[in-house]
Write a protein that binds this DNA or RNA. Structure first.
Lengths: 173, 173
DNA sequence: TATTGTTATACTCTATAACTATA
DNA sequence: TATAGTTATAGAGTATAACAATA
């Protein structure tokens, strides 16, 4: 680890930039995606478009727009335009929902399935590489911790009775 | 014969969307940032602008543009415009580098320091909350794993010498 | 009236190339 | 010639509000 730097600026009570949790998450994501992005641009798919295709590939029955927005962390208007784009390129299709005419069910079109099937193996190979270098166990643990973190964070506005994880951390690390 | 119905879409060899590492990282980051974003928009600072200010706040001696781009994961052109914006608002200032007239050293201006000092405590409070809910030890472990992951990923083409991963998992989670 | 989803609008960031000015 | 940084340009996403169709 890097040693402590000379002195802190004024008295900013902040942890070092490198230890900021959002930055650490961003850095890890960047590192993970860097090798993947060329694959996407090869097929003229943006990262956000891929998130949509990727989410749909996991759902045989398709997803409603709202569900898709939630899963991909895209806002409604962004998703609307992305869906229009993907539909124009015949990568997805829309099915009417009989019970509610306002809703639309989004599914991968055959072309979209082919695209996912083209990219997926290379993505999976990359994933295996990470797994073997990082360790399958570490990877599993990391994913579990990320899930826990997401869950903790989501409960921001709820009552803060955080006794469940009573990790008092008295043990020296 | 009770042939299994076509549960999986074709034979896409992909892990579930929810177990995708990039998505897990994005989800965790979203969860972490969600409560922080209002703080930023209150002060008319975008997430990327904040990354710049945050990086500079950790450096008494400022940073060159290239260093700043690397640390914040911003492209040169994006950073150039962000810096122009922040300079116009007197949040940062530029210092010439005597030994190389091409370079510029970027530092927080007093106004920028004040802004960081305004936001930082609330950010830090939020961080403490996460720490207490998630567990200080878990948080440390997560940060360490993210670092390791970033290192592994960065070494895609290099030799791989990561030793910090042999955590024998002595503590039950 | 509330909801599902799209349009409208303005702005920011991404991404690549071309450019300026140093070195 | 190469490097540091900016400017040019096109496009995509973000974010908020307003809207249409349906419930």
């Amino acid at each position: 680890m890097a040693g402590p730097t000379k002195r802190r600026k004024a008295d900013l009570p902040m942890r070092p930039f490198s230890q900021s949790l959002p930055m650490a998450l961003l850095r890890a994501r960047e590192a993970t995606m860097r090798s993947f992005r060329p694959m996407l641009s090869e097929h003229d798919v943006t990262e956000q478009q891929w998130r949509v295709l990727r989410a749909l590939a996991a759902e045989d029955d398709g997803l409603e727009v709202r569900e898709l927005a939630d899963q991909t962390f895209l806002l409604g208007p962004s998703l609307s335009r992305i869906l229009a784009n993907l539909e124009r390129r015949r990568l997805i299709r829309r099915l009417a929902v009989a019970t509610d005419q306002r809703k639309a069910r989004i599914m991968l079109a055959p072309t979209g399935q082919r695209l996912v099937r083209t990219i997926a193996p290379r993505s999976e190979a990359r994933y295996q590489q990470i797994e073997s270098e990082f360790g399958a166990k570490n990877l599993r643990r990391l994913l579990a911790m990320l899930d826990d973190l997401s869950a903790v964070e989501l409960g921001v506005d709820d009552d803060l009775d955080h006794t469940a994880l009573d990790d008092t951390d008295e043990v020296a690390s």
